[in-house]
Amino acid sequence: MNRYPMPGAAALLLLAATAHAQQQQLPQTPQPTQQQPYQQPANPYAYPQSGQSPASLYRRSALGITLGWGAPYGWGFDYAHMVSPRVDVNAGFGLGISGAKIGVGSRFYVAPEKKVSPYFGANLVLSSATNNSLDVDGDYTEYTTKSNAVLNLRSGLRWQPGRVGLLGTLGYGVRLGGDPIVYSSAYPNPTQLTRDLAQAIGPGGLELSLGMSIGLGR
Score class of each variant (00 low, 15 high):
residue 141 T to Q: 00
residue 116 V to K: 12
residue 136 V to F: 09
residue 105 G to Y: 01
residue 115 K to H: 04
residue 163 R to M: 08
residue 109 Y to G: 02
residue 118 P to G: 08
residue 158 R to N: 07
residue 137 D to A: 15
residue 119 Y to W: 14
residue 105 G to F: 01
residue 133 S to M: 09
residue 152 N to E: 10
residue 130 T to G: 07
residue 155 S to M: 15
residue 162 G to C: 13
residue 144 T to M: 05
residue 166 L to E: 07
residue 124 L to T: 03
residue 137 D to H: 09
residue 127 S to Y: 04
residue 120 F to C: 02
residue 117 S to W: 02
residue 116 V to Y: 11
residue 108 F to S: 05
residue 111 A to N: 11
residue 128 S to N: 11
residue 157 L to K: 05
residue 168 G to M: 14
residue 157 L to P: 05
residue 105 G to R: 02
residue 149 A to H: 05
residue 137 D to F: 12
residue 123 N to D: 14
residue 105 G to I: 00
residue 113 E to Y: 10
residue 114 K to Q: 14
residue 156 G to D: 06
residue 162 G to K: 13
residue 120 F to D: 00
residue 122 A to G: 12
residue 158 R to C: 04
residue 138 G to E: 12
residue 147 S to M: 04
residue 169 T to Q: 11
residue 144 T to Y: 04
residue 116 V to I: 14
residue 151 L to Y: 10
residue 131 N to L: 11
residue 158 R to L: 05
residue 122 A to H: 06
residue 149 A to N: 07
residue 108 F to V: 07
residue 170 L to F: 15
residue 105 G to E: 02
residue 104 V to N: 05
residue 107 R to F: 06
residue 122 A to N: 07
residue 105 G to V: 03
residue 139 D to W: 00
residue 126 L to Y: 11
residue 118 P to R: 11
residue 145 T to W: 04
residue 111 A to E: 00
residue 106 S to V: 00
residue 168 G to H: 08
residue 143 Y to Q: 02
residue 166 L to P: 02
residue 166 L to C: 11
residue 131 N to W: 05
residue 117 S to D: 06
residue 137 D to E: 15
residue 145 T to V: 13
residue 139 D to V: 04
residue 130 T to I: 06
residue 168 G to R: 09
residue 120 F to G: 01
residue 128 S to M: 09
residue 130 T to K: 10
residue 149 A to E: 08
residue 150 V to L: 12
residue 156 G to R: 01
residue 112 P to K: 05
residue 171 G to N: 03
residue 145 T to R: 04
residue 125 V to T: 12
residue 149 A to P: 01
residue 135 D to T: 09
residue 165 G to I: 03
residue 132 N to R: 13
residue 161 P to M: 15
residue 108 F to P: 01
residue 126 L to D: 05
residue 122 A to D: 05
residue 158 R to S: 01
residue 153 L to W: 12
residue 140 Y to F: 15
residue 110 V to N: 04
residue 133 S to Y: 09
residue 137 D to K: 09
residue 130 T to S: 14
residue 129 A to T: 10
residue 104 V to M: 10
residue 114 K to S: 12
residue 166 L to T: 09
residue 123 N to E: 13
residue 147 S to T: 06
residue 135 D to H: 02
residue 145 T to P: 02
residue 106 S to P: 02
residue 117 S to T: 11
residue 133 S to F: 08
residue 145 T to A: 10
residue 127 S to E: 02
residue 136 V to W: 07
residue 117 S to G: 09
residue 124 L to G: 07
residue 123 N to S: 15
residue 112 P to N: 12
residue 141 T to Y: 06
residue 153 L to V: 15
residue 111 A to S: 13
residue 110 V to Y: 07
residue 167 L to T: 07
residue 171 G to T: 05
residue 133 S to Q: 14
residue 135 D to S: 14
residue 150 V to Q: 01
residue 144 T to R: 15
residue 150 V to M: 08
residue 109 Y to D: 05
residue 162 G to S: 15
residue 154 R to E: 14
residue 144 T to V: 10
residue 163 R to N: 07
residue 128 S to C: 12
